[in-house]
């Protein structure tokens, strides 16, 4: 195999130019002002300072709230789904998991768009409510709509890793636990759940990462005024044109995610070492 060692060089050069360099550029933009001309760089921390203004802090807080809420909902719904699926025989399991996977492959945009026809004021849900004599609800352009969109988008990313780790659990451990006198619930809590923690953490990381940085779902289901971190960045780059401020927000977003991932991985490690 050592004949092929040299084959990595194209990618090394490619990665340096088009993965690492853009990151450095974002960082450079975040600490400078007035655009991108390398001739007269002016360093500043103003972009970061500006983020502490209440308008922007509110956006950050809102993004966090929504992100954490959707992760928690996905965790509860997803764990149950994964656990129930894992109870079936293998052939049925494979089919069910395939059915969970298919939406993951379909464009988020198209799936989010599909919710519009269900949630809008004269949409299907409201006409159904009217039909059975209930008050129509105002769902479009609310937190509820955004949350529905997020959860339906993210749920598969929670189910798959949890299911994978549940499947890996050695059945004899559960039998051993029962044999040693633990009841169903104790067995679940002390054996099954504990052993599925790596999958849970993976799912939490994935869903948090996707929910905190989304901008399509809030834009489509939350309306033009609905602003999360992703929308804030989009606005800076697409409509306002303040790339420096936009880069600063991106740096913060990347740091938030990096820190969360590191924390999660640490929990994972501690958990394993504890065993």
């Amino acid at each position: 195999m050592k004949h092929y060692v040299k084959m990595v060089w194209p990618y090394v050069i490619w990665a340096a130019l088009i993965i690492v360099l853009p990151l450095l550029l974002i960082i450079l933009y975040s600490v400078t002002k007035n655009g991108n001309e390398l001739v007269n760089i002016q360093f500043t921390l103003e972009n970061f300072k500006r983020m502490t203004e209440p308008v922007y802090m509110a956006v950050f807080i809102k993004s966090f709230e929504l992100g954490i809420l959707s992760v928690v909902i996905c965790l509860i719904l997803g764990y149950l789904l994964a656990y129930f699926i894992a109870g079936f025989q293998e052939k049925v399991q494979n089919l069910l998991i395939l059915l969970v996977t298919i939406p993951m492959w379909i464009n988020t945009l198209l799936r989010t768009y599909a919710w519009i026809s269900l949630l809008s004021d004269n949409g299907l849900i409201n006409s159904f409510l009217e039909m059975i004599g209930l008050q129509p609800l105002n769902m479009m352009y609310t937190d509820f709509a955004v949350l529905i969109g997020l959860v339906s988008d993210l749920l598969p990313f929670m189910v798959i890793p949890i299911h994978t780790s549940l499947c890996k659990i050695d059945q004899s451990l559960i039998e051993a636990s029962m044999d040693l006198g633990a009841n169903r619930f104790q067995t679940f809590w002390r054996v099954t759940f504990k052993l599925s923690i790596p999958g849970v953490l993976n799912g939490v990381i994935m869903t948090f990462l996707l929910s905190i940085s989304t901008f399509v779902i809030p834009k489509l289901l939350g309306g033009g005024q609905y602003t999360l971190i992703g929308n804030l960045i989009e606005n800076q780059f697409i409509s306002i044109g303040d790339w420096n401020f936009g880069s600063a927000i991106s740096v913060i977003l990347a740091i938030i995610i990096l820190v969360s991932i590191t924390l999660m991985k640490r929990i994972d490690k501690d958990e394993i070492e504890e065993e």
Partner: peptide
């Protein structure tokens, strides 16, 4: 996040 890759 995709958005960071994108702006980079």
């Amino acid at each position: 996040p995709d958005i960071v890759t994108a702006i980079g």
